[in-house]
Amino acid sequence: MLSRTADHLFWMARYMERAENTARILDVTYRLSLLPQNGEDVEAMWDGMLKIMELQDAFLARHPVFSTEAVLEFMIFDRDNPGSIYRCLRASRENAHAVRGTLTSELWETSNASWLKMRDFTLAKLMESGPEAFFEWVKYRSHLSRGVTIGTMLQDEALRFIRLGTFLERADNTARILEVKYLNLLPGAEDDTHTSDYYQWSALLHSVSAFEVYRKVYRDQITPMRVAELLILRADMPRSLARCLKEVHTNLSRVANARSAETERLAGELESHLHFGRIERIFERGMRKYLEDFRDRIFDLGCRISDDFLIPATA
């Protein structure tokens, strides 16, 4: 497969996944902002979320305060914000457009239709029906695109690079979703369980579609340590870091070339840390440090995949 084609496929999937996870992060933060005890903290919550997404400065350059409307406008519609859902869906569609011949027509049409529909939304319309309906729409478009991918694409290299993009992006995003929550906790307070925390943790579980999963796995009350274990170490949880790395490693080994041995080794190493890891040890080291470190490694993997496969080699 052409390197350029693989690059477009990889980014098509990453941007779709990013749109979905942005919707999830906005969804959980929005829900939390509605809890009565969070009244005064609403601005701080949006502030924290933007910080984790590394968009705080860009936001402040355009808006004076972290109001809900301003953040939603910025994160959903802003054409100048490369992280907005509008821009993610557009970028995903542009990447798909560049390789539409490699995609099944159903997959291309799914991507194109999502983009065409996105252009019809406005903040006013969205606030009127409640932003949750919109977040749901984004999630379902992403589900659809993934389903169409798996249901129609030949299981060849093209599919591998799409899957690589999806899971690498998801690993980064799940880590960020956890970070948003941990940002607001003081060191040492990580085991605390107030009532307000119950809502916060359950909102977080909802945001990654893991609330029912949690109940099923633990059949017990919600504690931060179990939530972390579920989202980091449980490989049977489809959005966990362990699952993502397992997929990254597997797909990477299927497309291996003469240059990619070290990249594959690093992915395998990270996967085995997650596979054999203990949540107690992670808490001892400190969750925020752990998550930051994890995201650095994901970033590094992304760069290596680019170098090994996607950036056209001259010989």
């Binding site: 497969m1 052409l2 390197s3 350029r4 084609t5 690079f161 497309v255 070339n257 996607l310 056209p312």
Partner: peptide, 20 residues
């Protein structure tokens, strides 16, 4: 394959495409 110019190169009068 659908290629662009940047995907192709010529070496010793032979045309190649850059693949993964």
């Amino acid at each position: 394959e659908l290629v662009e110019g940047q995907d192709l190169f010529v070496r010793e009068d032979q045309v190649y495409m850059r693949t993964t």
